[in-house]
């Protein structure tokens, strides 16, 4: 079998006394939707931060597309093809939806193309932005300031922004948090279409129904430790996982 697209070996990240990730190893195979679940504070977002270079791991290695990206700067990792969204939405406050889709294509076009008016010099960037705008059904709001939109729409804009960069791995941190059932279902269908188009997706989500219906493989974190991994059906019936969740709620 081919090498995994993303591979973490023995990654540890601590904040002072707190071990947010301890000795984590996992991998994401090309063309799959892989879910990361776990109770609050389990270290899921920290995992994303380490993969994308926002935080530097204390020890361990991260490999993406057979390259050791452990110490790369964030923009390089993104350009290599691992692009993310944020749990606490981070859209650019001055920009319209359309501008978000143009700005996040840094790899595309020579500098002179990027320095001239987009509509003269950058047909390819415009075409890509139009395509993604259409895909997420954002045409009606294209000229609105993204931050002024509803929560669910803002999440869509974040995903669209990440997608314009043509990533190989899309990392989604709680993509349907705050969305109603229909909106979430809409997102689920879009994710499946992306996967069928060959994109690999790693996603964090609390909504169990959503995860079980979407993911090809799951990792379960608790207190920074990987406590289970497997197919959704296996995870659903895993007593250790039940314990971690029920233990928290009780």
């Amino acid at each position: 079998m081919s090498a995994p697209l993303l591979q973490l070996s023995d990654v540890t990240k601590s904040f002072g006394g707190i071990k947010a990730l301890s000795g984590l190893s996992c991998e994401v195979r090309q063309g799959q939707i892989v879910g990361v679940i776990g109770p609050n504070g389990a270290g899921k977002t920290t995992l994303f931060n380490v993969i994308t270079g926002a935080y530097r791991a204390n020890s361990g290695d991260v490999n993406f597309d057979r390259q050791p990206i452990t110490h790369w700067r964030p923009y390089r990792i993104a350009r290599a093809g691992a692009v993310r969204t944020f749990q606490n939405i981070r859209l650019f406050s001055s920009m319209t939806v359309w501008e978000h889709l143009l700005v996040a294509q840094p790899g595309r076009g020579a500098l002179w193309r990027r320095a001239l008016p987009t509509r003269w010099a950058d047909g390819a960037a415009i075409a890509r932005a139009e395509e993604v705008l259409e895909f997420f059904g954002l045409k009606d709001v294209r000229n609105q300031i993204a931050r002024s939109l509803s929560y669910g729409t803002q999440r869509k804009v974040e995903m669209a922004r990440a997608l314009t960069a043509n990533p190989r791995l899309l990392l989604l941190d709680e993509p349907v948090a705050g969305m109603n059932h229909d909106e979430a279902e809409d997102i689920r269908r879009l994710m499946l279409r992306l996967r069928d188009g060959g994109l690999t997706i790693l996603l964090i989500e609390h909504d169990m129904g959503f995860v079980m219906n979407l993911c090809d493989y799951l990792y379960v974190l608790d207190f920074g430790v990987l406590i289970a991994k497997g197919l959704p059906a296996e995870i659903q019936s895993d007593p250790i996982v039940m314990d971690a969740y029920l233990g928290k709620e009780a």
């Binding site: 994308t52 270079g53 926002a54 700067r73 964030p74 923009y75 993104a78 350009r79 692009v83 993310r84 944020f86 981070r90 650019f92 406050s93 001055s94 920009m95 501008e99 143009l102 700005v103 996040a104 840094p106 790899g107 990027r114 922004r161 990440a162 960069a165």
Partner: peptide, 18 residues
């Protein structure tokens, strides 16, 4: 736009590849 992205949120700009 890249310059405005830096002004709006430099960390996020970096993480999406700028």
């Amino acid at each position: 736009l890249e310059m405005r992205a830096v002004a709006d949120d430099e960390t996020a700009a970096n993480l999406i590849g700028l």
